[in-house]
Amino acid sequence: MGVKVQDEDFDVAAEVAVLTAQRTDIGAIVTFTGRVRDDDQGRPIASMTLEHYPGMTETELARIEAEAAARWPLQASLIIHRTGKLSPGDNIVLVIAASAHRQAAFEAAGFLMDYLKASAPFWKKETGPAGESSWVEARENDETAAERWRST
């Protein structure tokens, strides 16, 4: 179990290795990596800057992780979210869910991402090739994606 909020990049394989070291009870590992795209609905993106609420971000991510652990039999999990200035192709977020069996790992990884997107206090600002910048608008379907877990 763990959450990290950091400017630095992460290495998916290295994080999985740390999470599973000395563990023989883990039968399934699902990783999700979110990356910066070079366009947002047709608008070219030169860079993206991620702002967050220090203190609340870590608290909120830990709460989301604890909720996942209460819903699924997870052996291990990890959330890493980057902050600061990122370029197209850079990693933004990593979620790892590890369990004895695949279904719990798949579902927990999906839940972690949906809840992170709906409630973790991060804000993205995109900058275009000419230097113009704008805050990314929240999408209705991010909240809907989190809602779907309430009925399950």
């Binding site: 991620l50 979210h81 973790a120």
Partner: peptide, 26 residues
């Protein structure tokens, strides 16, 4: 105090109150 609240939430003894747009992480 670093927990999401609705507009009708009582401020009570809170020491830190934050305002921000809908979140867009992930």
């Amino acid at each position: 105090d670093k927990a999401h609240v609705k507009p009708d939430a009582p401020i009570a003894e809170a020491r830190e109150i934050a305002f921000f747009p809908p979140v867009t992480g992930g």
